[in-house]
Amino acid sequence: MSNVIGIIRALNSGVKHLAIKRFTLRYPEQKLKFVGDGFQFNPETGVGIAGLRGRHILFHEHCTGCQLCSVACEGIAEAISMVKIHETWKHNKKAIMPQIDYGKCVFCGLCVDACPFYALYMTNDYELSSFTKSALIYTPAQLAIKPNIAQDVEIKIDDRGASHG
């Protein structure tokens, strides 16, 4: 008898969920909201600023071509290589800047921690899929573009359960 009551209780607990809001995020139509503009780092205090670790953004006016990001990546993913650029900057005599291969990058953000000149940050852009491997290699010019990502929904909690907007 107790078995029958147990099964009815289990079924009842499941049936109650018909009246509860759906939790699923309908991804391509809805996109999650993140805190901030991506992971950034303050080399003076040595502490980062919270944010999503997505695609990098490179500020050409700050980058000196010191290669510290590339050195930091060496033992981790070896995704960063320094390439020649066709721009002339007074602070970048060697005229080299990082080029990032997103087929290798693990998005740990230790290159951002290594940059002492506020030149390399991470952004909220996480949609990096492509049809070819070569399109995953981002040149310094591509990295300079600020992404524009729609952010609509976050988890809402009320009496009828949690849902995405």
């Binding site: 805190v35 901030g36 502490v47 919270a50 944010g51 670790r53 953000g109």
Partner: peptide, 25 residues
Amino acid sequence: LEAMSGARVTHAYLVPGGVRNDLPS
């Protein structure tokens, strides 16, 4: 944890000496 560390699965958040970044507001 994504709001805290910036990654959904492999957080790389704890480091010798503390954590990578402060909590968001």
